[in-house]
């Protein structure tokens, strides 16, 4: 099974700390960032399969990260997570090319499911069963 390269960006340290092993368990190789500037730098260096990013962050917000990723490589699936979920924000994210949008709080499985779908869309299925067809 191929590894799915995932970049996880959230200024909340616990998110990265806990989700990294959670995603690793289903066969993802996760790089965790808290600082969006460093994350953007890393994105420039490397093509990730999936970028998971928080929206509301200090210096650079998630929308900018999304734009950056899409501009660089639109094969990369970007998943937005946010505590400030609103219809307008969701529509904006989708319009800018996000793969999915999920509101905080979510369960690790919610994110795994989305990543699994992204992986499938990329043709690199991971070790997570998509049994929900919603």
């Amino acid at each position: 099974m191929s590894h799915l390269e995932v970049l996880l960006l959230d200024d909340e340290p616990i998110v990265g700390k806990r989700l990294k092993p959670a995603l690793a368990k289903v066969g993802c190789e996760v790089e965790v960032f808290q600082d969006p500037v460093l994350a953007l730098k890393r994105i420039d260096e490397k093509d990730f399969d999936v970028v998971v990013t928080d929206i509301s962050m200090a210096e650079v917000d998630g929308m900018q990260v999304l734009e950056h990723v899409v501009a660089k490589n639109n094969r990369t699936k970007v998943i937005m997570i946010t505590g400030f979920a609103m219809m307008s924000l969701a529509r904006e994210a989708m319009e800018k090319g996000a793969f999915d949008f999920i509101a905080k709080p979510f369960k690790p499985d919610d994110l795994r499911l989305i990543i699994a779908r992204a992986a499938e869309a990329l043709g690199k299925p991971i070790d997570f069963e998509i049994n929900d067809n919603g």
Binding site: A85, A90, M94, E95, D110, I114
Partner: peptide
């Protein structure tokens, strides 16, 4: 057909 009306986890959760 515009992208901003594409369903996503968040909006589907809203419906649920």
């Amino acid at each position: 057909a515009n992208r901003q009306f594409v369903p996503m986890t968040y909006s589907l959760n809203c419906v649920k």
